[in-house]
């Protein structure tokens, strides 16, 4: 699969910046400590909150830190900047689809973050006994779910970038993303939401990014609900990729017809 060549380049690119790497790792360690302290403090004098035990919560939050780089907002906006500056001409004159170019390029960046920051964290937390690795079938389902989470977070960013291209204005996109992070379950599980917000979050695609994979890992999503959660992910993943392709080809058409 030739697109993996883009993944490789972007993966290797991560290793070019050593200072950046150590800063990222240091930041990740601090966030792990903060999250651990926060949840132990919250749970000090109480039993399960919204049906979630301290153990599950720690597992959700710590694994959240491990995969946060992999599932962080991708850098699709620079591509749109390239559109405006005309740099994209070179990318369009390649026998490769630009949407997939970006998807696989960004996958390289995500994998770099997972391997360079996530894996050391997972190892240390595992050795300390803070994180317990689930049984193999659960682990496999988690990986599949996390990959769908990746496509969702990429598509969210890509779609907003393409919409930005169509509206020629970036206002609003940046503000929306904070809400997306909240609805994705990045800060805490959706179980803590008030009922109406939970309904909204359950319908939207964004819970696919953090809540579903982490919920499966930590057991917050009950085994009986895993299948329907995966189905939700799958449907939205397909819808978002299809929407991306439609809007993207529209953008390319208007680029080639109007000349940018």
């Amino acid at each position: 699969m030739k697109y993996l060549a883009y993944t490789r380049c972007e993966f290797l690119r991560g290793f070019r910046y050593r200072a950046n790497y150590w800063a990222t790792l240091g930041g990740a360690v601090i966030l792990v400590v903060i999250q651990w302290s926060l949840w132990t403090a919250v749970y000090r004098n109480t039993g399960p909150i919204a049906g979630i035990s301290l153990d599950s919560m720690i597992s959700y939050a710590m694994m959240g830190r491990v995969v946060s780089g992999f599932l962080s907002e991708p850098v699709a906006l620079p591509a749109v900047k390239r559109v405006w500056s005309g740099e994209i001409v070179h990318d369009l004159v390649k026998p490769a689809d630009l949407h997939f170019q970006l998807l696989f390029q960004n996958l390289g960046n995500a994998l770099f973050k997972l391997v360079s920051t996530g894996l050391p964290l997972l190892t240390v937390l595992g050795l300390m006994g803070v994180l317990k690795v689930p049984r193999l079938p659960v682990l496999a389902v988690f990986v599949v779910s996390m990959l769908m989470g990746y496509v969702t977070v990429f598509s969210t960013s890509f779609l907003s970038a393409v919409i930005t291209f169509h509206t020629k204005s970036r206002v609003g996109i940046d503000h929306v993303y904070t809400v997306v992070e909240l609805l994705s379950g990045m800060y805490f599980p959706l179980d803590f939401f008030p009922g109406w917000l939970r309904m909204v979050a359950d319908f939207l695609p964004f819970k696919s990014i953090h809540y579903v994979p982490l919920g499966i890992w930590s057991g917050i999503i009950a085994p009986g609900a895993v299948a329907s959660s995966l189905l939700h992910q799958l449907i939205w993943t397909i819808l978002m990729v299809v929407a991306s392709r439609i809007l993207w080809s529209g953008a390319v058409r208007s680029l080639t017809i109007q000349g940018g």
């Binding site: 030739k2 060549a5 883009y6 490789r8 380049c9 290797l12 690119r13 070019r16 910046y17 390649k94 026998p95 490769a96």
Partner: peptide
């Protein structure tokens, strides 16, 4: 930010 060689490798793959 990658060595020139990588650009060659990439295009070699992209053009099959």
């Amino acid at each position: 930010d990658l060595p020139v060689r990588e650009s060659f490798d990439l295009l070699g793959r992209i053009y099959d």
